[in-house]
């Protein structure tokens, strides 16, 4: 493992660890409004200052990081499982089934994601609590983000179909779900693993995009997307540099994921 990968692991563990300790590091919480100090620069009380309505930016960054880092892997898990089911089975079954499954996948791939998410968000019931809105946002991301992985898995699964060990298993009388579950799926694991890791930064960035559009996690709950929205209209970098903290953290985490991922891919190969 290279030094960079080790550093990436350390950075990821540190970020996850600190965000999990948000309750202790920022006991006042992410929603408390210090209305006498809106838009305050960093002080000893507020390490990253306060936002436009006087909420502690450091607390919001910690809680937002926790939300993004907990739920992005959850969404990645959902999408990877869906990809395994659709892509893996399509490749395994082949023929007409594969063509139908890939046609559906292509249809999903051709959909404009952002507009689809905006539409789905608009159709949702309005009266959902902020926590529910977080879960729904990431669930939507997970449900819509399986397509690319499904194509990869379909190809991998199809390449296994004619392999010797499957012929041997069939000759031994193993059929159907058992054949898929016991012999095909374990051989897809390295690809599934890689797809899972690839999806995490994608979902983090997707949520950030939705948040910038005001369509992600509901107020007062923070997420990286809603925190990044503060950078809108910033005229110069030197003006309020502390506002860049969520951006720096996002870059750090996504880069770390990529470095860790490249190692996983090598292992998978």
């Amino acid at each position: 493992m290279s030094v960079f990968r080790k550093l990436a692991w350390v950075a990821l563990l540190l970020v996850v660890g600190v965000s999990m300790a948000a309750n202790w590091l920022a006991p006042a919480g992410y929603a408390k409004q210090y209305r006498t100090q809106p838009n305050a620069p960093p002080t000893r009380q507020h390490w990253l200052g306060t936002d436009e309505v006087g909420r502690d930016r450091f607390a919001r960054l910690l809680y937002g990081t926790r939300i993004s880092l907990l739920l992005a892997p959850a969404a990645a898990l959902i999408s990877t499982l869906m990809a395994a089911l659709v892509g893996g089975l399509a490749g395994y079954l082949g023929g007409g089934w594969a063509r139908i499954a890939m046609a559906v996948t292509d249809l999903f791939l051709s959909l404009p994601w952002l507009f689809l998410l905006i539409t789905v968000r608009a159709l949702m019931p309005l009266n959902v609590s902020p926590l529910a809105s977080v879960l729904v946002t990431f669930l939507m991301l997970g449900m819509l983000g399986w397509t690319s992985a499904a194509r990869v898995l379909c190809a991998t699964s199809a390449s296994l179909r004619g392999s010797g060990f499957l012929l041997q298993a069939r000759a031994s009388g193993i059929r159907g779900v058992r054949l898929f579950g016991v012999h095909v799926l374990p051989n897809l694991t390295p690809v599934l693993y890689a797809q899972f890791w690839i999806s995490i930064p994608v979902f983090i960035l997707s949520e950030a995009n939705l948040g910038i559009l005001g369509l992600g996690v509901a107020e007062p709950m923070p997420s990286w997307g809603s925190l990044l929205k503060e950078l809108e209209g910033l005229v110069s970098i030197g003006e309020e540099p502390w506002k860049f903290a969520p951006l720096i953290l996002l870059v750090l985490v996504v880069t770390s994921f990529q470095l860790v991922l490249s190692n996983r891919e090598e292992m998978a190969a």
Binding site: R35, E52, L213, E219, P220
Partner: peptide, 16 residues
């Protein structure tokens, strides 16, 4: 409406 930061901020203050 999304994208109107002033209304979003007013809503957050009213929420509180």
């Amino acid at each position: 409406n999304s994208g109107n930061k002033y209304r979003e901020r007013m809503a957050v203050l009213i929420q509180e």
